[in-house]
Design a protein around this nucleic acid. Structure first.
Length: 194
DNA sequence: TTCTAGATCGTCT
DNA sequence: GACGATCTAGAAA
């Protein structure tokens, strides 16, 4: 639980820079059951207005994407099928950009994660956007909050030696936007989704 | 190991 | 009423 929350200025860097800077940081979630956390090892950037694959494409502003238009460092959660996905809001106010956290490496509260992901080996607890939210206990109740304080926050971690970049995943029906190399992960880390 | 289909539900049209 | 920024199980090679 040691670890200082990243300062507000950390979130003010350009979205693509922030997506890389987030790698190695620690995502911490506090619940009544205890604290669970993990190193962020995979992210994906969504560039708002110009990104066909983003929910906020064309400045589409709805009840759902509202928080993306707020200041950087806010929490954007989205429900997909039966799963919940977490994003870090980026960009200035009125600039709907965000970064999806795709995978983390278990750190604290591993017995909690195991209890939440019964029947799975450790590697499969958090190696996917829908899986890590379940393992850490992140829900829609976190929507609109800030990563600067509990119950959900991002703290200092380590500096990854190498970072890889590639195409994003799961957005095959969105034209040329699917080829943008806006997915980043820690090279060689076994907890990335692919 | 790779792929195909079904589950399942809130949000937007 | 249609559609996913997904996951999992089960079948095929």
């Amino acid at each position: 639980m040691e670890g200082t929350p990243m300062p507000p200025t950390f979130y003010e860097q350009p979205t693509l820079e922030l997506a890389k800077a987030l790698l190695g940081c620690v995502l911490v979630k506090e619940t009544e059951e205890g604290i669970a956390s993990g190193y962020i090892v995979e992210t994906e950037a969504y560039m708002g207005p110009i990104d066909r694959a983003a929910h906020s494409y064309g400045n589409r502003r709805t009840k759902r994407t509202e928080v993306m238009f707020h200041e950087a460092g806010r929490i954007y959660t989205y429900v997909m099928h039966t799963h919940c996905l977490v994003n870090v809001v980026s960009g200035e106010r009125e600039k709907p950009e965000a970064i999806l956290i795709r995978a983390v490496e278990p750190l604290h509260g591993q017995e909690l994660m195991e209890a939440r992901r019964p029947g799975h080996v450790k590697k499969n607890w958090t190696n996917g956007p829908g899986k890590l939210t379940k393992a850490l206990g992140i829900t829609m109740e976190d929507y609109g909050g800030s990563y600067l304080q509990p119950p959900l926050m991002i703290t200092e971690g380590y500096q990854p030696e190498n970072i890889s970049a590639g195409k994003r995943i799961g957005i095959d029906n969105t034209g040329e936007a699917r080829d943008y190399p806006w997915r980043f992960w820690v090279s060689g880390n076994p907890y990335v989704s692919r």
